[in-house]
Design a protein around this nucleic acid. Structure first.
Length: 419
RNA sequence: GGAGAGGUGGCCGAGCCGGUUGAAGGCGCACGCCUGCUAAGCGUGUGUAGGUCAAAAGCCUACCGAGGGUUCGAAUCCCUCCCUCUCCGCCA
């Protein structure tokens, strides 16, 4: 969330950000609550101050065996008054906090302004679309021919959008995960985290999924726990309500987890094959950094993710999201879209974002800067990468004229393991 | 799930028959002094948040797991909840 002081002094900037992000937080209401809050706080402090002073005097008199009945009598109404103001203050505070949770992060000034993805800016292309001397089929055809997927049975046991990988398909997907994890650990210096897949409400709120996106989350009502939509949630919240020692920064974590998304409101969109799923696997990178470095880290993480696609020799492009396409919590986001020759589209396989202090403020992730001042860290995360669309690109790119599928060289070691 | 113990400042750890206790003491940390070097020693300081202020200083307020209650006054008493540890049960 944003600092209320920032909102107070940069109201128009925030107002514009809300519009540019297609959000609808009520700033006037927030400013009014803030005003009320400060007034009540002042009243409370004043009353409390008086009560403390008199209580002190009562204590002194009692110590000296003097009578304090008049003072006690005098204060008896004050306690009630304080309770009243305090209750009011608590109510306003809660209301203000709730309202602030609906204010999105402010996009970086350089982010292109636009309503939807049509205003996104293509940053660069890597490689070229592969040429085929036959007509390439889509990943479903490749998978069927080679026995890699069983989506029908996935639908039978869970529902559509819950893929079943079979035989070499399952091994390939697992190999992808291992390869990506080890790549980031060994080449980029990330520390691996194995994270819980069910998290509580506070954790979901910390990274900004709640309250706005509750409809998109699988919820276990009995325990009020949520299935994570991305490892970003548990991993970023690892340090919630903590003060990180300066020498520990930057912190770089990588985690593989399944991800669960209800995808409410996107029925019939990109439903073919592995394009849009309720459950999928993803390797996620998360960084905690000092604010002055955070945009350098954003570029670095983007590069970390790109290297995976490069290692597989896949053609892709990098896109900078416009304000309207930016997520609620993000200040700047790059998407990486890999080319899938069978379906003939660029598919998002990674999203790399800088949240600046937005998540850190919500989750309470701070550090002491070199001058000993308490500051919020900047948090970033990026997929590195999500497996389903990566599978699509691989299957479609490396299909052969005879319908078979060629394993990309970097994965051979994992698939040829002998025991 | 049942029984018991406990949750205090960066850490350890007093206080818990209510009142100069934001909180003893120790460790750590920072600065200074001292000292061939190192170690040790001595001194001072060292929480977070909100408010007030142009700002700093200062001042005020809150915070001893969370939330309520009793009281003129609560870290200290009462209630509810959460978490940790130990034992039992259950499941892997």
């Amino acid at each position: 969330m944003l600092d209320i002081k920032f909102i107070r002094t940069n109201t128009e900037l925030v107002r514009q950000a809300i519009i540019n992000k297609n959000e609808k937080a009520d700033l006037d209401k927030i400013l009014e609550l803030d005003e009320q809050r400060r007034k009540l706080q002042f009243d409370f402090d004043t009353l409390k101050s008086r009560q403390n002073a008199v209580s002190q005097e009562i204590a002194n008199r009692k110590r000296n065996k003097e009578d304090a009945a008049d003072l006690i009598e005098q204060m008896s109404g004050v306690a009630e008054e304080i309770r009243g103001v305090s209750a009011e203050l608590g109510k306003v505070n809660t209301e203000l906090e709730q309202a602030l949770l609906w204010v999105p992060n402010v996009p970086l000034e350089t982010v292109p302004v636009g309503r939807d993805e049509s205003a996104n800016r293509i940053v660069r292309y890597y490689g070229d679309q592969p040429a085929f001397d036959f007509s390439p089929v889509d990943h479903l055809a490749v998978a069927e021919k080679n026995g890699l997927l069983d989506l029908a049975r996935g639908a039978k046991i869970s529902g559509s959008g819950f893929p079943v990988y079979t035989a070499q398909g399952a091994r390939l997907e697992r190999a992808l995960i291992s390869f990506m994890l080890e790549y980031h650990i060994q080449k980029h210096g990330y520390t691996e985290i194995g994270a819980p897949l069910l998290v509580n409400r506070k954790t979901m709120t910390g990274t900004g999924q709640l309250p706005k996106l509750e409809e998109d989350m699988y919820h276990v009502g009995e325990d009020d726990l949520f299935l994570i939509p991305t490892a970003e949630v548990p991993v970023t919240n690892l340090h919630s309500d903590e003060v990180i020692q300066l020498p520990k920064l930057p912190i770089k974590y990588v985690a593989y987890t399944p991800c669960f998304r209800r995808e409410a409101g996107s029925y019939g969109k990109d439903t073919k094959g592995l394009q849009r799923l309720h459950q999928f696997n993803k390797v996620e990178m998360v960084r905690f950094v000092e604010p002055r470095d955070s945009y350098r880290h954003l570029e670095e993480m983007l590069n970390d993710a790109e290297e995976i696609l490069q290692a597989f020799g896949l053609h892709y492009r990098v896109v900078e999201l416009c304000t309207g396409d930016l997520s609620f919590a993000s200040a700047k986001t790059y998407d990486i879209e890999v080319w899938a020759p069978g379906v003939g589209r660029y598919l998002e396989v990674s999203s790399v974002s800088n949240f600046e202090a937005f998540q850190a403020r919500r989750a309470g992730i701070r550090y002491k800067d070199s001058e000993g001042k308490m500051q919020y860290v900047h948090t970033l995360n990026g997929s590195g990468l999500a497996t389903p669309r990566l599978m699509i690109a691989l299957l479609e790119t490396y299909q052969q004229a005879d319908g078979s599928f060629k394993i990309p060289q970097p994965l051979e070691a994992w698939l040829n393991l002998k025991i």
